[in-house]
Amino acid sequence: MIRGYDAFGRKPPVTNSYQVRRTCNLMTSFDYTSSDIPEDFIVSYDDIPKHLHQKTDESLGDWRDRLWLQHRTPITTAALEDIKLAYVEVINPLLSQ
């Protein structure tokens, strides 16, 4: 299976940090208005690794694109591919050397 769309193409527009984190699967427990998450499992913004925080001179769109490449593609997309790897080889030539 040859894929070439993961990190390219049109991304949803973003107007705030919540939308950026939601798009890239970096939600915190405080993003859910009525959450029943036990206190031991609450994820705060400080729990997100520092290298994934928005840089001071970075626009929301650039931050979203960086999170898409550095977090969502290798973490979320790779996990979704895992179930098919027993049957097919998945390559993404636009992301590999």
Rank of each mutant, 00 (worst) to 15 (best):
S34N: 13
K55L: 14
K50N: 09
E58G: 13
C24A: 13
P49V: 11
Y5L: 06
N92W: 00
Q54C: 14
R10I: 06
V90S: 09
G9C: 00
R3S: 11
D82P: 02
S34D: 15
H51C: 06
Y32E: 15
D6T: 02
D31L: 04
P74L: 07
I2C: 10
D82W: 05
Y18D: 05
D65S: 09
L69F: 12
L95Q: 13
S34L: 07
E81A: 03
L67H: 04
L80I: 12
L60W: 03
T33A: 03
P38E: 05
D65V: 02
D65T: 07
L94E: 11
D62L: 08
A79G: 11
D40C: 11
A86C: 06
T56S: 11
N25I: 10
V90K: 08
K55S: 12
S44C: 12
S35W: 00
D36L: 09
T28W: 02
D65C: 03
K11C: 02
T56K: 15
Y32K: 14
M27K: 02
T33E: 10
R10P: 03
M1C: 03
T77A: 13
G4R: 08
N92V: 01
A86S: 11
P12W: 08
R3A: 08
G4E: 05
A78T: 12
D57M: 09
L67W: 01
F30I: 14
D62K: 03
G61W: 02
L85A: 07
D57Q: 13
T33F: 01
M27E: 04
A86E: 10
R72M: 08
V20P: 00
W63Y: 15
I37L: 09
E39S: 05
F41P: 12
S34F: 06
E39A: 05
I75N: 04
Q54Y: 04
N16P: 03
V14R: 05
G9V: 02
G61N: 08
V43K: 09
L67A: 02
L67M: 08
Y87V: 05
P12Y: 09
W68Q: 12
L80A: 11
D40F: 03
R66C: 15
R22G: 13
Y45E: 15
R22Y: 12
N92G: 05
Q54E: 07
R66D: 14
